[in-house]
Amino acid sequence: MQITGKVAVVTGAAGGIGAAIAQRLLEHGARGVVVTDIDAERLGETGRQLAADHPGCVEAVAGDAASTDGITRLIETAEREFGAVDLYFANAGVTGGAGLDASEDDWSRSLDVNVMAHVRAAKLLVPGWLERGEGYFFSTASAAGLVTQIGSASYAVSKHGAVAFAEWLAVTYGARGVRVSCLCPQGVRTELLMAGTRSEDAAERVAAQAVLDAGALLEPLDVADQVVEAVADERFLVLPHPQVLEFFRRKGADYERWIAGMQRYQESVARPSR
C-alpha cells in the first residue's frame, strides 16, 4: 500500500516507536494521522511537534487505546477530520509483571493492551475494509512474541498472542484486501525498555538487561523506516533485528536445544555481578 494520501491511526504514539511511525508516515505523504496515548501530557507535546511540521494533518487524542470506547473515538476522529481510516497501527504496549508473582491485574493489563486492543480494533475496522476492498492492520508485537522474553511471563505470553492474532488476520482476510504486518523488534531505545533497567523489581531488571545484551539497540526512527518499507511491500513479518529470524529458526529446528540455551542465557544475565 502506498502511504501518500492515506489516513492512519497510531496508538502508543506519545514517544518511542509510535511517535516515530507517525513522523515517518507524515513525511511519506499521509494526508492525516491520528495519534493517541494514555499519557496526555507527552502526547500533547508530540502532537504539537508533528503538527508544526505538517499543519492540518495531525490530530492528537489522549485515551486508552485498549478499550472499545477509546478505539471508537479514534476511528470517529479520523473519519470526521480526514474522511477515513486506511491504516491502523496497533502499537501501544505494556511490560506487565515479571514472573509468577505478577498479580492478576498485571496479567489482565498485559493481555488487554498487548492483545485485546488489537482484537477490538480489528472488529471495528475490518468489516468496513472488506466492503471497500482495502485496509491495513499493522501490529506491533516483539521478538518476545517469536522467541520468548527472559524474565517477563506476561510480556512473552501476550506478545505471542499479538503475533498469533496478526497471523490469523492475514490468513483469514489477506486475500480479501486486508493487508497485515507484524513488527517484532528486539532492543529499541524507548522509555518502555529503559524503565525496566531502573525498576526496583529484580526480575524486571533482568528482563530489560536480557534485551540489551541480545544485540544492537536501535533508534525508534530506524524501526519506523522499516515499518514504512514493509507497508510499501505489504510484507507480513517485520524484523528490524535480522538475527531474530535465525533465533526463530533455531527454536523451531531443535526446541530442546533452544530451551537449554535460553536457560543458560537467563543464568548469565541474572548473575549478581550485574
Rank of each mutant, 00 (worst) to 15 (best):
E219T: 04
H54R: 05
V147T: 12
T68M: 06
T95A: 13
R264D: 13
L124I: 03
A51M: 02
E219K: 02
D213T: 13
A30K: 00
T190W: 05
T95M: 15
G44K: 02
S158A: 05
A175M: 10
G12F: 11
A14H: 01
R264G: 12
W258G: 04
L26H: 05
L50T: 01
Q263Y: 14
E256G: 14
G215H: 04
G15W: 01
L237P: 00
V227F: 15
Q266T: 11
D106S: 04
E200N: 10
G215M: 04
P55M: 09
E191D: 15
A230V: 01
Q263S: 07
A121V: 05
I75M: 11
L239D: 11
L221I: 09
G44M: 12
A40R: 00
V85G: 10
H160S: 08
N114F: 10
N114H: 09
V9L: 06
Y155P: 06
R235E: 09
L50A: 02
R257S: 10
D106F: 10
D222G: 15
G70D: 04
V269L: 14
T77V: 03
A30N: 00
G29A: 07
R189G: 07
R176V: 07
A20G: 09
A153C: 11
D213C: 11
A19V: 08
L218E: 15
Q266W: 07
A65C: 08
Q49L: 08
T72F: 10
R257H: 14
F137C: 00
G32S: 02
A117Q: 04
E229G: 14
S142E: 00
T4R: 14
R120M: 04
P185V: 02
A102N: 12
E246C: 03
V171N: 14
R80L: 03
S142K: 02
G15I: 02
L193Y: 02
V188I: 04
G70A: 05
D101E: 15
I259W: 05
A78L: 06
W107C: 08
G252F: 11
R249Q: 13
A164M: 01
V119N: 06
G187V: 00
L100V: 06
F248P: 15
D39P: 02
R179E: 12
A216V: 03
A92Y: 01
A102L: 10
G135T: 06
L169F: 01
A214H: 15
T68R: 15
K251Y: 11
S108D: 15
T4Y: 09
E41Y: 13
R132D: 02
Y88G: 08
T4Q: 15
M262E: 13
V238A: 04
R48T: 06
N91Q: 03
Y173Q: 11
R271V: 10
G252Y: 02
R205P: 07
